[in-house]
Design a protein around this nucleic acid. Sequence first.
DNA 1: ATTTTTTTGATTTACGTACATCAAAATTGA
DNA 2: TCAATTTTGATGTACGTAAATCAAAAAAAT
Lengths: 340, 340
Amino acid sequence: MRPTVHDIAAAAGVSLATVDRVLNQRPGVRHVTREKVETAIRELGYIRDVAAANLAKGRTYPLVFILPASDNSFMHGLNAEIRQAIVRSSAERTDIRTIEVPAFDPAALVSVLEGLSREKPCGIALVATDAPEVRAAVDRLVRERFPVVTLVSDLTGSLRHHYAGVDNIAAGRTAARLLGRFLGPRKGEIAVLAGSMLVRDHRERLEGFTAVMAQEFPDLAILPVLEGRDDPEVAHMLVADALGNAGIIGVYSLGAGNRGLIRALKEKAVDRILTVIAHELTAHTRAALIDNTIDAILNQDAGHEVRSAIRVLKAKADGLAVIEAQERIRLDIFLKDNLP
Amino acid sequence: MRPTVHDIAAAAGVSLATVDRVLNQRPGVRHVTREKVETAIRELGYIRDVAAANLAKGRTYPLVFILPASDNSFMHGLNAEIRQAIVRSSAERTDIRTIEVPAFDPAALVSVLEGLSREKPCGIALVATDAPEVRAAVDRLVRERFPVVTLVSDLTGSLRHHYAGVDNIAAGRTAARLLGRFLGPRKGEIAVLAGSMLVRDHRERLEGFTAVMAQEFPDLAILPVLEGRDDPEVAHMLVADALGNAGIIGVYSLGAGNRGLIRALKEKAVDRILTVIAHELTAHTRAALIDNTIDAILNQDAGHEVRSAIRVLKAKADGLAVIEAQERIRLDIFLKDNLP
DNA sequence: ATTTTTTTGATTTACGTACATCAAAATTGA
DNA sequence: TCAATTTTGATGTACGTAAATCAAAAAAAT
């Protein structure tokens, strides 16, 4: 049987009230007494029963999720996962609120972050826009002792407690190696379709991609990046246009807007052997993988990211440790054979 | 505020005791009264506070994990993950016991399973050995209302509630496609190293592998399977011997004993361009991936499997739903760029 | 109508912790 | 040494549920 507060009280030779004062850092305990209690806690290996404590406190976990108002499949999926979490929220004592902010707008994000201090949530998750003022706002929240995790897109150099998302440099490197290996000895040019180079995850993917390409596949030349703004129409236009170049033998799509990419590929490349790697598993990319339009899909599981963010925020709010291995968000690689 | 038993009692116009009788299916409630209470539960959307209920019941979850006594890195890893879970177990009200049985010995496994009925654990996880008598024993436990999940190796056709492991046919298919795509236009022979064809996961991986190979890569011929018994020494001998065949251009290692494989590759294939795909990320395979001896590693995360098995068993014991997407064990594909 | 049986209510204790109150004891300052 | 202050103890209530007891009411059987 695991020890309870009563056991510590007995072991330390003090009353229950004193143990309670020590455990909840309330004043009115002499230093020596506090030490006695702490020794007993250590020796008995006492661990607070969080369920009972939460019951007694009537504790809930008000969490805030801040998301960009982007209209692409991935963000829709992320939203859906958060809604799912909200459905389960009462059972988990969480109370999740989402706030939408304009995408790629640091000022808007900062103003939302600043408003949170007054609201006193017990945890904040945000899809970070990479800007110094956002970093400053996050750091200020952390200093005010709010647990903060970044979701999907990180804010390196900030004091955020945790990042619930994939390693985008590794993702780009992986894409490069897959593409290089799939192409084998062929020489030619590679088209890269991104959303915007202003977004950190896209920049990082490109960075990893070009690094491995340059180092390991010198016969493949990367063409200037096409910025499709994560918009299917724009992507379609850019890719259709680029495919006029007969030297292209591979495509890496590192952002969203793949619907346009796929349409362009089907229209313009029926007679060509192209190797294509894209990000994010959606209904469209899945279908394209199955009909061989796309050769591999790199994916991040939005559901895992959301659940992980919630677990980490709750743990931080309670001052508990997290299982690091469990919270690592993995890069999924899907071929047509291992689709979920 | 979420409704409590008091609220249902008030809404149904009955006493707390009656609500309790209904909730915990105790006798002594007239049919009409039971209906009134159930209506109130539905209308108020009452959900039992599991934490409070467990506290009141002093409930713990005695779980049994049955593992084969195999001496390979993967099983060591699995064991380590279970020990980790045991460390956390008191905080999670679980009480985990492991039982080791001789590997590949259906009779031994059956006798352990039969002994469990008396012990009354609230959940059973087992690495299944694929045999009719094991299936029968598992089905009997399920009929006696014990939650049962298979771990790592499934028992298809049995009544087990859940399988916490990867889809091994998909794994084999994925290996075949990776190998085929990496080899590109080259023609040649493929060596396959397995542990034993008596183990279901190995059979399934081979099945998926040969299917995709035959269908999509007819220029690659699969040589007769080498059965290394998951033993590094045996694997080394077999692979070193096989590499005498100069026609081999690819290797798929679908079981354990990769230490021997890697040694053989380094001794016999320094001058050759071999494409190698192996299962299970260990210190050895990781090093071999980094130094280019291995080209890709397919992996199942033992930690995820163990935690998933525990979550599912607890949920089943409480009659609760599981988040299916969360419990899906994914096939990890590691290249040297996305190692954790 | 009476007895027997079944159903329901009222009440209590418990789980492990949080938190508040008031009294008692110990310590400190003068 | 006495008063003022700090520290500690004793006790009670609460959280939401489980489970038990016993009395009261209702229903069924005779």
